[in-house]
Design a protein around this nucleic acid. Structure first.
Lengths: 180, 180
DNA sequence: TGCGCCATGTAACATGTTACATGATTAT
DNA sequence: ATAATCATGTAACATGTTACATGGCGCA
């Protein structure tokens, strides 16, 4: 259960409300969850029930009250334990590859069109990632080593889109060659 | 709903039983589903109820009866339509990156150990993918263009692990430099 | 005797998404 | 007026996994 640990991690960085977490998830590309209410608020309740976080209700003038969650000592231990555990493999699900597998039934222009729109979508993502991410920017890191790690995370995602982009460009050339 | 179309695609290639599909999913890396019974058999029923496939029950001596599913004309149309639709972005979920984000609390040897085990897992996956895949091998393709597409799908996955491997090796070097 | 293959299916659970619901304040 | 931001939460649905259930055949 990784959202749980993602939230614990963010709270280990600083106390946050559910609304804050939601925004981080929906803005950030590294924290790949959609940031939907259901998951965030339910997970926070679970963490609270398990004693991994504490919370404080803050009344505000002219704004709704908010609940600020703070990681507990037990929560820090749980997070540290999870980090040390052997890493899982990345999950890559590219339904475009499934489309391609049966795309031989398309006419050459249709196939070319499909590849062109995939290339454009990938390129757009690359551009989005290439703009500095507001969360986890190395300037906010607590140590040079953390800054290096955060920069590496960013690089990892950029490289993914770069590789994908190169791949689709190369495939388009190969297909053009085969048809001539 | 992509399993549905993945199954339709496989059936457009040749008639298959639920058991066959299960095996293809669990053996193949391109068809990334786990190949669990629940999903395969339920999806086949849905496809049947929607008239996208027909089926034939084949009694066998000394073996349980099997249901061979064949794609229908309506199924072929549905598949073709899905293929032409604009492609979705690949879904990449790497919980290791979330671990890394908070890994500054580890000691240098602990962090080095974490990265080493990730590198090994990625390398193992690379080796697995590097062996020729039994499904969708270009030799079984119905045209040179299909062979090219299938080869490209395979290359796409290999490149992913290669990129990831390069990335983690580079990160290990950078971390070693920062500590000296 | 016990495991793996063939072949079907169901139950329970985990995870994740969209949409619904409320309600004040602030900016266009 | 109308949309966006702040802030909480619930309901319904989609998708995917593990484990359970049945049962014969062949192999070590």
């Amino acid at each position: 259960m990784s959202v749980k640990h993602a939230i614990l991690g963010l709270l280990s960085w600083q106390p946050l409300s559910g609304y804050d977490l939601k925004k981080i998830f929906s803005d950030s590309t590294a924290f790949y969850w959609s940031g939907n209410n259901n998951q965030v608020y339910r997970t926070l309740l679970e963490l609270y029930d398990e004693g991994l976080v504490s919370r404080e209700i803050i009344q505000q003038e002219n704004l709704p009250a908010k609940k600020i969650y703070t990681i507990s000592e037990k929560g820090r231990q749980e997070l540290r334990q999870w980090i040390t555990v052997n890493p899982e493999l990345p999950v890559l699900r590219n339904s475009f590859l499934i489309q391609l597998a049966w795309a031989d039934q398309l006419t050459p222009p249709e196939l070319e069109n499909l590849l062109a729109s995939y290339e454009e979508e990938i390129h757009t993502q690359w551009l989005i990632h290439n703009q500095s991410s507001p969360q986890l920017s190395p300037e906010q890191a607590r140590s040079p080593r953390e800054a290096l790690l955060w920069s590496a995370i960013h690089q990892n995602q950029l490289r993914f889109y770069q590789t994908e982009w190169d791949w689709v460009k190369h495939l388009r050339v190969s297909l053009a060659e085969i048809q001539s």
